Amino acid sequence: MHEGTPHTHHPADGSLWEMQILLPALALSACAVGYVVLAHRARRRNPVRALSPWRGVGFLTGLALLSVALLPPVASLAHSDFRGHMAQHMLIGMYAPLALVLGAPVTLLLRALPAPGARRLTALLHSRPARFLAHPAVALLLSTGSLAPLYFTPLLTVAMAHPAGHRLLLAHFLLSGCLFAHAIAGPDPAPRRLGVRARLIFLGCAIAAHSVMAQLMYGGFWVDVHAPVPEVQGGAEIMYYGGDIAELLLAAALVATWRPERRARTAVPASASCGPARA
C-alpha cells in the first residue's frame, strides 16, 4: 500500500475524452439494438420457442450496468480514486456479466441464425478450446485468480498508467466475468457442464478467495496499490461487501436451475426431445 495516486491517467485532450464517452455509448447502444432485432427475428421464425421476455430484461440490465461503469461519473472517479476503480471493477466484472449471461445471448443467436450459421456456432461451442474455457476451474482462475497479481504486484499501476492498458484491464474484467457467470449459472448451452453441486463448490472457492483478498487489502498486507490508505481500505470494503452480494445473486441463479435438472432426469425417454417452449 503506497501513498499517492500514480495510477491516475488523463486524456491528452478534450476530443479524446469525448471519444472515451462516445465510443462506449455507441457500442452499448448497438448491442441493445442487436439483441432486440435478433429477439424479434427469432420470435417471427418460431414463436413457440421464443425466449422469455425476462431474458431480454436481463441482457438490457447488463448493458445498463455497463453504461454506469463506463460513463461518467463512475468512469471519471475510477481514474482518480481507488474506490471508484473498485466500484467500476465490481460493475464490469461481476454484476453486468451475470445480467448479460442470464439474457441467454448464445441461445438467441442459435435461434435467430440461419441453419448453416447455427451449425457452425454449435460446432464452435463444442470445440476443445471452448470446452476448456467453459470449465468452472478455468473460469475461476481467469476471473478471481487474476485479482491476486493485479492488486498484490505492480500490475495495476502499470495498467492504469496507459489508456490502452486500462481498456485491456476493463475488457479482461468483463470477459472473465461473463465466462465465470456462464460456467456457474449460464442458461446457454454448454457441453459437459458439471452438476449443480460441483458448480456450487467452485462458487464457494470464488467467495472465499474474494473475502481473503479483500481482508488482506484492508489490512495492508502485501498489497501493491499506489493510493492513500483510506482509499485502499474503502476499495477493500467495496470488494468485500459488493463481491458477497454479486456472488449471492450468482448462487441464486445457479440454485434456480436445480429443479429443471431434477425434472429432466425423471422425465420419460419419449418426452426427452420435447424441451420447454420458453427459455
Rank of each mutant, 00 (worst) to 15 (best):
L200W: 11
L121N: 09
I238L: 07
Y240I: 00
V232N: 00
V229G: 00
A198G: 02
S67D: 14
R265V: 00
V196H: 10
R55G: 05
A246G: 14
M19G: 14
H7N: 12
V212Y: 01
T8C: 11
I207G: 04
W54A: 12
G195P: 02
A161C: 13
A27H: 05
I245A: 13
G234C: 04
P105A: 08
L51D: 10
P149D: 14
V33W: 08
L51G: 11
L249D: 11
R278E: 06
R262A: 13
I21N: 11
V196Q: 07
A164T: 13
Q215H: 05
R278H: 14
L156I: 02
I21Y: 07
L71A: 07
A256I: 00
A32V: 14
C31D: 03
G220E: 00
Y95I: 09
H79R: 08
G220V: 01
F59I: 08
F59H: 02
H40R: 15
P260V: 04
V106C: 11
L121S: 10
A267W: 09
W222R: 02
P276I: 07
P154N: 13
R45W: 06
I207H: 02
T5N: 03
A256N: 00
L200D: 12
A183G: 00
L110F: 01
L133T: 08
A246K: 00
Y218D: 03
H226C: 12
G242M: 05
L102F: 04
S76Q: 14
L22P: 07
A171L: 15
G84H: 06
R55H: 13
M94H: 15
H85K: 09
A185K: 02
S80F: 13
A164S: 09
M239F: 12
L63N: 06
W54K: 06
I21A: 12
H210G: 08
I245N: 04
R192K: 15
R111F: 01
L63V: 08
L26H: 06
A12Y: 06
T266W: 15
Q88F: 13
A208V: 14
G4I: 02
L109D: 00
